[in-house]
């Protein structure tokens, strides 16, 4: 083993070898890429996100109504809140995600 070459460390030698071969560092490839794109996938995801929030709001509203005997007001309130949460879910989905630190 050549002692001198070892001092650079394996990573550096790997990088040098890659540069010589004109290879792109795979670690530099887009990391932590988001969900795969595609019209069908995006469409169903948006639908599911919206509907699930509305359903959760509806269920919580109905459950609170039965508990507090306030039918149908809390159901209506939480239905609207659920719709808002659904829109927010979709907004989060389509807005570019913050890249995780480091």
């Amino acid at each position: 083993m050549d002692k001198k070459r070892d001092e650079g460390g394996f990573d550096q030698r790997l990088q040098e070898a890659r540069d010589r071969q004109g290879l792109i560092d795979p670690d530099a490839a887009p990391k932590g890429k988001d969900l795969p794109d595609g019209a069908i996938g995006a469409g169903t995801r948006v639908g599911v996100e919206m509907v699930s929030a509305v359903v959760v709001g509806l269920v919580i509203g109905l459950w609170l109504d039965r508990w507090l005997h306030t039918a149908p007001w809390l159901m209506l309130l939480f239905l609207v809140l659920g719709m808002a949460a659904g829109v927010m879910n979709v907004f989060r989905l389509v807005s570019p995600r913050k890249t995780p630190p480091e």
Binding site: T44, R45, V48, A53, G57, L81, G82, N89
Partner: peptide, 22 residues
């Protein structure tokens, strides 16, 4: 706050419904 809580609670629903429905 209620909207954020609902959004948080809707996570398991959307996660499961997506896989199941597909």
């Amino acid at each position: 706050v209620p909207i954020e809580i609902l959004s948080y609670l809707s996570r398991p629903v959307s996660l499961s419904v997506r896989l199941f429905a597909n």
